[in-house]
């Protein structure tokens, strides 16, 4: 590997500033998007999606099919964290009405930190993320209506919202690394699982793929159904359940590059 790389270094060296410029531009774009869309929006009728696609036959047809099964959508900010943010919001929202599952999840979340430290994540920072994660869980553990409002408020406060995302990314990475033998088969190219985690899972703003969803839902012991809507032929909005065969507790709508929450 090193031999292959060594001729690159002289040219790579001049690219440093360019990388930095690209990144800066990317950050500017991200910031512009951020400012225009709420981290997690209000629950809207699915009709809002139909209106969005009024002039787009393919998507309009699919939206109508989607409307047979779902009535509401809740949009999330398209910042690369949308899967984790949408999932955690929808899951906690569900747990508000299901105390038994809530307690189970709380237990699991409480124990999850030690696993991460054992995997080599720096204790000092993991503890900080974990504390905030638990704080959010605890704050939505009370009476239903108040918890719902609290959830919405917390998820629109960047400090809390992003810490929840970071922590779920860590849990996902932890699951991938613990079951590396299994997940290795899903990784393209010659990256190892830990390389993949460091590049695609742990950093903020990195988009999620099937493998993230499988690992996260497995780690949390719950199921996610994702409805895929794209320009492909037909009017079906294909459903995928993660992990396979699990009972879905959260329903998400996927459009290329983005996840939103769906409700029946």
């Amino acid at each position: 590997m090193e031999d292959k790389r060594s001729p690159q270094w002289s040219s790579e060296n001049t690219d440093v500033n360019q990388d930095e410029l690209i990144l800066q531009q990317q950050r500017r774009i991200e910031r512009e998007i951020s400012e225009s869309i709420a981290l997690v929006g209000e629950k809207e009728s699915l009709i809002s999606l139909e209106l969005e696609y009024a002039k787009d036959e393919v998507y309009l047809a699919k939206t109508k099919v989607l409307g047979q099964k779902y009535s509401y959508i809740r949009r999330t900010r398209p910042d690369g964290n949308c899967f984790f943010r949408a999932f955690s919001y929808a899951y906690l929202e569900r747990l508000i009405d299901n105390k038994e599952e809530y307690e189970k999840f709380r237990e699991l979340a409480l124990k999850s930190k030690d696993n991460l430290v054992a995997l080599g994540f720096p204790q000092f920072t993991v503890e900080d993320f974990h504390d905030t994660f638990m704080e959010v869980i605890d704050k939505v553990g009370g009476d239903s209506e108040a918890s719902r409002l609290e959830l919405h408020k917390l998820f629109n406060e960047q400090g809390y919202s992003d810490y929840v995302v970071v922590y779920l990314r860590l849990i996902t990475s932890g699951q991938l690394q613990r079951e590396a033998d299994f997940y290795q088969h899903f990784i393209e190219g010659d990256r190892t699982i830990s390389e993949f985690c460091h590049q695609e899972v742990e950093p903020m703003y990195k988009e999620s793929d099937h493998i993230h969803i499988i690992a996260m839902s497995t780690a949390l012991g719950t199921g996610v159904r994702v409805r895929y809507m794209d320009r492909g032929a037909g009017t079906e909005v294909t459903a995928h359940d993660f992990p396979e065969g699990a009972l879905p507790t959260v329903h998400l709508l996927y459009r290329p590059g983005h996840y939103d929450i769906l409700y029946p």
């Binding site: 270094w9 990144l23 720096p122 993320f129 970071v166 190219g189 460091h198 742990e202 950093p203």
Partner: peptide
């Protein structure tokens, strides 16, 4: 360094930045 997908870089990907670094 932020975790860019750059297979040509001479750096080991395992050393890239993530929010648990401090």
């Amino acid at each position: 360094h932020p975790p860019v997908d750059d297979p040509q870089s001479g750096e080991l990907p395992c050393e890239r930045w993530n929010p648990t670094q401090n």
